[in-house]
Amino acid sequence: MPEFGFLEGRPFWIVYLVLLAVIFCRVQATYWIGRGLGAGVSLSPMGRRLGTRLDTARARIDRYGAPVVTLSFLTVGVQTAVNLAAGAMRMRFGVYLPAMFVGSLIWAGVWGVVLSGMVGAWWTLFLRSPWTAAGVAAAAVAGAGALVVRARLRAAGDQGAGTEPSEEAEPARPV
């Protein structure tokens, strides 16, 4: 079987550790970017106006935010927002680090199994029938595109449904 990337044929623990290193570096960078942004907000006029409310929000995030950080690693897209927000709200690093580390352990395991399984299955299919493998890849891309379009249409519909009709649009009723 030909080489498929530098991790092809490696033991799972090597794949796992590489994924763990990747996610660890990425979320740390996201958190510290958020910390920098949060420092700017705290010093801004808006931050000064929020005053104690901002401190109260930070205390709640320190108290209840760790499980949210950990569980965010089971999502796609939300994870980055949660880690950025944890940094921006200046979640204490001693609270954030263990939650982020446990989430990273979970993420590396899930993606190590899922990605290696999917890539391995697709590669085996490709070796047996390249046209079928191309069809499966095209169907996956089309399915993902359809889900994105559906979500955008639903969001646009929800925005339109959330507005109340103006009084001018309703016909006058006799009294």
Results as ranks from 00 to 15, higher is better:
137 A>K: 02
170 E>S: 09
141 V>P: 00
128 R>H: 14
156 A>C: 02
107 W>Y: 15
58 R>P: 13
141 V>R: 09
153 L>V: 02
146 A>N: 05
53 R>V: 09
79 Q>W: 03
98 P>H: 07
59 A>F: 06
63 R>C: 11
61 I>S: 08
91 M>T: 09
173 R>A: 15
82 V>G: 12
69 V>R: 07
133 A>Y: 00
64 Y>R: 03
152 R>N: 02
90 R>T: 04
98 P>G: 10
155 A>R: 04
64 Y>C: 06
139 A>D: 08
81 A>V: 12
143 G>I: 07
81 A>M: 06
83 N>E: 15
41 V>M: 11
145 G>A: 14
48 R>P: 03
126 F>E: 12
60 R>G: 05
54 L>F: 07
171 P>Q: 15
154 R>S: 05
154 R>E: 06
106 I>H: 13
129 S>V: 03
66 A>P: 01
53 R>K: 07
165 P>A: 11
59 A>H: 05
111 W>M: 14
69 V>C: 03
90 R>W: 07
141 V>G: 03
117 G>N: 10
105 L>M: 03
116 S>K: 10
131 W>A: 15
92 R>T: 02
94 G>N: 10
57 A>F: 04
66 A>R: 01
166 S>P: 00
103 G>L: 04
45 P>R: 11
142 A>D: 02
64 Y>H: 12
99 A>G: 11
156 A>D: 03
46 M>R: 01
112 G>W: 14
108 A>D: 11
115 L>S: 10
173 R>Y: 07
152 R>P: 00
160 G>R: 13
58 R>K: 06
77 G>Y: 10
89 M>Q: 02
143 G>H: 08
118 M>Q: 09
152 R>L: 15
130 P>I: 00
54 L>E: 04
157 G>P: 03
90 R>D: 14
95 V>H: 12
175 V>K: 10
158 D>W: 03
139 A>H: 11
143 G>E: 02
147 L>D: 00
168 E>V: 04
73 F>V: 15
57 A>Q: 08
117 G>S: 06
56 T>L: 10
158 D>Y: 00
48 R>H: 06
94 G>C: 08
101 F>Q: 12
68 V>K: 00
108 A>K: 02
74 L>W: 03
97 L>A: 06
168 E>C: 03
160 G>C: 01
150 R>N: 01
156 A>Q: 00
162 G>I: 10
42 S>I: 05
173 R>M: 05
120 G>R: 09
149 V>L: 05
137 A>M: 01
44 S>T: 08
41 V>L: 13
105 L>V: 14
92 R>Y: 05
75 T>D: 02
125 L>T: 13
147 L>W: 06
78 V>P: 07
121 A>S: 14
41 V>Q: 08
109 G>V: 13
56 T>V: 12
54 L>N: 04
53 R>Q: 12
43 L>T: 01
76 V>F: 08
154 R>P: 02
137 A>S: 13
173 R>P: 02
162 G>F: 04
52 T>I: 08
46 M>P: 07
113 V>D: 07
124 T>N: 00
129 S>G: 09
108 A>L: 13
129 S>N: 14
89 M>H: 14
136 V>R: 02
140 A>I: 06
57 A>D: 01
148 V>F: 12
93 F>E: 08
149 V>K: 02
134 A>W: 06
158 D>R: 05
112 G>K: 12
87 G>F: 01
57 A>M: 12
